[in-house]
Amino acid sequence: MTDPAINVSHVSKQFGETQVLRDISMQVEAGKVSCLIGPSGSGKSTLLRCMAFLEQATSGSIHIEGEPLGFTDGPQRRRQSPAELRRVRSRIGMVFQQFNLWPHMTALGNVAIALRKVRGMSRSDAEDRAMAQLDKVGLKERAHHYPAQLSGGQQQRVAIARALALDPTIMLFDEPTSALDPELTGEVLNVMRQLASEGMTMVVVTHEIGFAASVGNRIAFLDGGRLLFHDTPQAVFAAPREPRLEQFLDTYLDRGASMLK
């Protein structure tokens, strides 16, 4: 049996006195999409950020395709060297809520820079490849625009292209549409749908319950730093047995119902 794409094992995380994640274990199989849902402060973003080692788990371990991320395996938990961390992390593409494009580079520059500086590609090779990625997210015409000249949806699509250009096997999305209005949300979700249909392994922190239900192979529900549920959308949405989950989903139903009045 092959290793899962992501294996989270007994991860706990403390910020000072606050326990943000409590003994979380979950696996994401290659080619599957897991959506992390839950109320604000439930720890879902922190869990995702741990998967990219942007946050360090206080205890527990995370393996990416069988290799430890951030800390070495073995009895003594030691930090990986920066080079080793970069090597393991190179399989992961990360997309942020605030896009985090670099404002002093064009869309093309944002996508091309790591190809040049990390992959050592020539400028023209890197830009050809970057242009192909921008084309894929429908932004070839905007390649020479700076981030400030792009809409939020376009910026997020550039950010997705930037991550994809480095050939990750796993894509992590941290509330990718939370900073966007509903119209722009659609264009970003479409790109993500396409990516999922191509078999990309994805973990998505989202409040878009509809997207989670239709694209997610698994739904993970977090509350108070605990993983209460990690199951198929059918199991989660059709028959929520967990009272806390039922309550959480009701808030979405309430909003939908109030629109019909």
């Binding site: 670099w102 790591a114 930037r162």
Partner: peptide, 14 residues
């Protein structure tokens, strides 16, 4: 913004 540095770390920049 811290996020700009995080994005660079995730892209593999030293």
């Amino acid at each position: 913004p811290v996020g700009h540095v995080e994005a660079a770390e995730c892209a593999g920049l030293s």
